[in-house]
């Protein structure tokens, strides 16, 4: 997985933080997606201002978890969100 990426919401998609993680709303359905990310990702990550590498670093510093594990978990989540057409990943390298 490349961590040299930023992610933004697709047109018509909104997201907000909930206790279980992230709640996505897709205007094009409309559909809701409940994503149990817990504290892993904040909703503002999808504004595209912070890279995945920075997010991994933040989580590692905050939680002390192994980087490989964090990357694997984030990869699962972000791949699913991309597959559901909720977010776009752009390489910044």
């Amino acid at each position: 997985m490349s961590v040299c990426k930023v992610y933004t919401l697709k047109n018509g998609v909104q997201v907000r933080r909930e206790t279980f993680g992230l709640l996505f709303y897709d205007y094009r359905g409309p559909r809701l997606y409940f994503v149990p990310t817990k504290d892993l990702i904040e909703d503002d990550f999808f504004q595209g201002r912070r890279s995945l590498a920075e997010l991994v670093g933040d989580i590692q510093e905050r939680q002390g978890w192994p980087t490989d594990w964090i990357e694997e978990r984030l990869d699962q989540i972000l791949t699913t969100l991309e597959r559901k057409d909720l977010i776009d990943g752009q390489s910044i390298c």
Binding site: R16, L23, F34
Partner: peptide, 14 residues
């Protein structure tokens, strides 16, 4: 539909 997440209580309506 994520019933279990809805039952946890949302911070605001959808």
């Amino acid at each position: 539909m994520g019933n279990q997440y809805v039952e946890m209580g949302l911070t605001a309506p959808v």
